[in-house]
Amino acid sequence: MAPRRKIVPPGDAPRVIDQGSVWILVAAPSIWAAHFLISYWVAAIWCAKLGRGTSLAEPRWIIAGLGALCIGAIIGLAVLAVRRYGGVFVIFEEITESSERGRDRFVGHVALLLCVLSAAAILFTVIPGMVLGQC
């Protein structure tokens, strides 16, 4: 007997990042952390294998390329925070409304700020790789 599949109506498929989910808050900082860790690994392994004074030409482009991809993903998250959560960058009135809508707007606002912070942090991870040319 074939396993029964749960039929999900179109449009109601569960999304990890959507209204009501707080995952959007940790997504952007997680992308920064992953970029930082991978950059560290790439540079450390490269320099450990090839030795002191080796050019960082290849790993620096891996780090920068990865940085561009991550910033792209963070921009995508920022768009989600604005469109699905109604997040705004600067708030002019208190978000104290105890409702789904109020909570979404608060999460969207915080997510947007974290997106900016994470993008700047990725930029600051890429800069040393671009300036320092060798191990």
């Binding site: 600051f124 800069i127 300036v131």
Partner: peptide, 17 residues
């Protein structure tokens, strides 16, 4: 802040280099 801190970071890294 991003521009100022980024500029100082680049300057410091150039000295280090």
């Amino acid at each position: 802040p991003v521009l100022v801190v980024g500029g100082l970071l680049i300057w410091g890294l150039l000295i280090l280099r």
